[in-house]
């Protein structure tokens, strides 16, 4: 069953065409990542799905509702989704527990506030003022506030920007634990390794259009692309692209009669594929 259906979505601002005919279908329980350079239309697309922005044309259905609903229907819509925005940094004069309990009061079927605090790893910080939290801890609180209403669908907008590698890994574990609850997650990110670690499928967006939707392993023909074999000969690095890297290595083994100097066998990373796609489409790569 699909949680999000988007057909031919368009949105323009006075000076730019932000979204230029996007089609999407996201299934229940899926973690779906939107990739693309700044200004590609990721945020506009997500904000239309969240109900923050109005579309110019196209069909959008989120949890069977139109996100543009107003009044009481809008409350019902927001009761069923969770939104973790890019950066929220209020003065932080409330404690973690006060904030979580207060937000839980907004929803019809909230999760237990203390349980959510523990599940995002802030159990020991429960009675601390938010302003005393580190950046990573604040982000965990943001996620906690995003899931307090037991959402069927969670939006995460660049959740780990500014994290150190260790904090990012532990954040990924947190998101993976939500997968087990069956929550559908729409994620935007700059980090290709993040998309690879979390997403079931990724969509690459550039200049308001979707270039491709695929699994991280298959994006851009990655799984069938040629492997690259590199080695050293007379102080110079050599390389060969091949569909049969084992044969090449066997040949080299007999050539060198044993250990091949500085041998590397690699396939393109998700990042290589992504940069190639954006570059080919003439997009700005940061």
């Amino acid at each position: 069953m699909s949680v999000i259906e988007v057909a031919n979505l368009r949105k323009s601002y006075p000076d730019t065409l932000a979204v230029d005919g996007i089609n999407l279908s996201i299934a229940q329980g899926e973690i779906f990542a939107l990739l693309g350079p700044n200004g590609a239309g990721k945020t506009t697309t997500v904000e239309i799905l969240e109900g923050f922005r109005k579309r110019d044309s196209g069909k959008v259905s989120v949890l069977g509702m139109d996100p543009q609903v107003t009044g009481h229907d809008a409350r019902e819509f927001r009761d069923r989704i969770g939104i973790v925005l890019q950066s929220t940094s209020d003065a932080g004069d409330l404690t973690v527990a006060e904030t979580m309990h207060h937000f839980s009061g907004y929803y019809a079927n909230p999760r237990d506030a203390d349980e959510v605090i523990n599940s995002v790893g802030l159990g020991e910080k429960s009675d601390s003022l938010i302003r005393t939290l580190s950046g990573g801890q604040r982000r965990r609180l943001d996620v906690g506030l995003g899931i307090i209403g037991s959402p069927e669908l969670l939006f995460l907008d660049e959740p780990t920007t500014g994290f150190d590698p260790e904090a990012r890994r532990s954040f990924w574990d947190l998101i993976n634990s939500l997968r087990e609850l069956g929550t559908t997650i729409v994620l935007t990110t700059h980090y290709l390794d993040e998309a690879e670690a979390l997403a079931d499928r990724v969509a690459v967006i550039n200049k308001g259009k979707i270039l491709e939707i695929s699994t991280p392993a298959n994006l851009g023909g990655r799984s069938t692309s040629l492997a690259r074999v590199q080695w050293e000969l007379n102080g110079q690095m050599q390389e060969e692209f091949t569909s049969e890297p084992t044969a090449v290595v066997t040949k080299l083994t007999s050539q060198f009669k044993g250990e091949i100097p500085k041998l590397i066998v690699s396939r393109p990373t998700l990042e290589d594929i992504y940069l190639e796609m954006i570059g080919a489409a003439g997009g700005a790569v940061e």
């Binding site: 923050f52 409350r75 927001r78 939104i83 929220t88 209020d90 907004y106 929803y107």
Partner: peptide, 18 residues
């Protein structure tokens, strides 16, 4: 305006609170 800058208003907007 401070709450708006901090993003706290937008966060509230994303919840079912009217």
């Amino acid at each position: 305006p401070m709450e708006r800058d901090f993003g706290s208003l937008k966060r509230l907007r994303g919840t079912p609170m009217p």
